[in-house]
Nucleic acid binder design. Structure first.
Lengths: 212, 212, 212, 212
DNA sequence: AATGAATGAGGATTCATTCAT
DNA sequence: AATGAATGAATCCTCATTCAT
């Protein structure tokens, strides 16, 4: 997402909305790319503003700090993934279908936004304490929503209940968060194929023992 | 100008604890602790040497750079896990037992060295290119050894073969590497219990479809 | 991020002397003085910025490195001497007059900027490879322009041709570059007197044998 | 000189004299090479002792400091050139022959020991004050001996006396000291050829005006 | 005569951030 | 809304030298 390639100013007076937004968005885009590539601490504010074609002053006009940039990146991803999960989880499809879709979707969206996944993996602990707490809280909400589906299946007997649901959730999201460390675009498997494989592995792993 | 293994002046008398430990070992210990807690980039050499009770000069006497410290930490973990895997994988137990043991063991050892796992997760990309390559190469060897067991089972029909073995390996090791981001000592589950759960989940995930 | 020529806030009022001078110029001035006095390696960036009354950050705002400072010093001298030489060499005075003037002028300008001469002598090899190459290239152009005059006279029979022109050039510029190591202001001879002596010595040294 | 290539220990007990001396000599040799190549400040004691195949302790056993090393290099060159000059200058050959020989010889010996020339040029000011004074004093004695010959000729009318003798001396030795900055072994001219050219240029430069 | 571990002071450089304009 | 000069603290690393053995 957020692909929005380089709209140059053009009509200065008219259409103010988009161009106005362009600077913060460009900053976020470039910051994402750079944080993913070099890590948060190894990326200087100077590099970010240069990549975005603005000056430092402009950046500090829109963002309070470098931390803020990272936080905004997280917040957006979190927001989107949460929205997606809620959509799927609360549909009235059968549980197995909902869980499969949720699992596959989060893989696909992680791959579509590989940079964000990478940053999540590597840079979260570099946020200041307060923001880190906020991110963790939001992530927990996400996990809880996901876990609820598993617990639902454990209660109904559809899923094995000899393993704590949160161990299963952490097991699965570990895999998901690590996609950035090995998945390379242009490989032989598409994002959706990986998503389906991962969803299958998860669903099969939690079949009740003795059931096919 | 590194290495200098084991000086041991002959049990000097008093203070048997940390102070006794050789300087390089103390440095590695403290660096591991700090890197895990604050991240590689956020940890200064000054902090490390203070924690280890030596001077900067001493550190640079034994290690060529801060990078080296990180590299040595990786190298040790990698070496140990590889040794462990080789022991288990080449035993003459049945395949499922071998894979179960290998999976459970790597979880247990990751938990026993939680700091190392955390560092692995967060800091590998901060190594310089050359060392990063060396670490990746070693890690690949490890994955390949693990994957060989899965392929063995796929060939014999013991494991499903509708998923590429390396997808399965990455799926599983994603989970393993993430232990550091959620497991807290003193929780309700022991390292071995987590290990067994993870091994079960893996083994069940790769049962051939339609088999219990 | 260098250059920033001439700010001049509008003659602020008091203190017309050094304080007024733009930051980059003050830095260059003090660096020249210090490099000449103590050598490039023995001069710390700290000393330079203190002498210039600015902070380290300010210096790195204008110059990419300590090397850059040295390079700029060279570049300015080289530029000026080249301009001077070109003016003299391409006039339509007789060859001997042109060469005499060029020789005398380069001595006078070396003495007028004794610090620069000293630095040239002592510090060029401390520049990084790339910049050193640039300086050498420029210096070679200078020497070639000078040599061309000598070759012109060798061709016309005005100067001896039993010695390679470039040996003569190196012979003479060795003397010139060494001025900084012995000439002291306030001695009995003025810069112009030295210049005339040196020019005479050169011109007489290259008279054709058997001619007064 | 000081070529003395690598006599390996061999007979340990016997012939103690030479091997004993070998360590300091090797240190001096390697230091000379390194100082010439990288400059005094850019050369670390570590590099020197490694090149010489000894340890730091050994070096500090023989030399009080890094400065000492540099000083010894100077002292040796100075001693040798002075001896050579005295030999030539006090012979009973005609003055012009003596001066020609002295000039040519100092060029040849500078080229034969190009490293020492380079060091002289670049590193003298990096000695501590006291040693620097000693070196300057010795060099002055050398110049004075050389100047005496010129003054002798000025008195007798053999050489021009419209230029101060010391200006002539500085003029000439500037050229000599700069040999290291342009002369490359393997060029088209031998050391002796350069020496003869330089001596000719000097002698012709100081002919009385109007005389061939 | 020689080792090599350890010191501790100092060096160049980077960087997030501020502020006058 | 935006600039860009300036800050100042922190960082990694180098090195000559010492000293117990």
């Amino acid at each position: 997402m957020t692909r929005s390639t380089a709209r140059k100013t053009g009509d200065v007076a008219a259409a103010p909305g988009e161009d106005q937004a362009a600077v913060p968005r460009r900053l976020l885009q470039q910051a994402t790319k750079l944080f993913a590539k070099k890590g948060f601490d190894r990326t200087s504010v100077q590099e970010i503003v240069e990549a975005a074609g603005v000056t430092k002053g402009a950046m500090y006009h829109y963002f309070g700090s470098k931390d803020d940039l990272l936080y905004e990146i997280y917040a957006r991803v979190l927001r989107e993934q949460m929205k997606q999960l809620e959509g799927v989880a609360s549909s009235d499809a059968p549980l197995r279908e909902r869980l499969t879709a949720a699992a596959s979707d989060v893989v696909v969206s992680s791959i579509d936004n590989l940079d964000d996944s990478t940053i999540f993996l590597q840079s979260m602990h570099q946020l200041n304490a307060e923001k880190q707490k906020a991110v963790r809280a939001e992530r927990r909400r996400y996990h809880e929503r996901f876990r609820a589906m598993i617990e639902e299946g454990q209660a109904s007997g559809e899923f094995r209940d000899d393993k704590p649901a949160d161990v299963i959730v952490d097991f699965f999201f570990g895999s998901v968060h690590h996609l950035g460390s090995w998945y390379r675009r242009g490989g032989s498997l598409s994002a959706r194929q990986i998503g389906d494989h991962y969803a299958d592995l998860l669903l099969d792993a939690i079949r009740p023992p003795g059931r096919s």
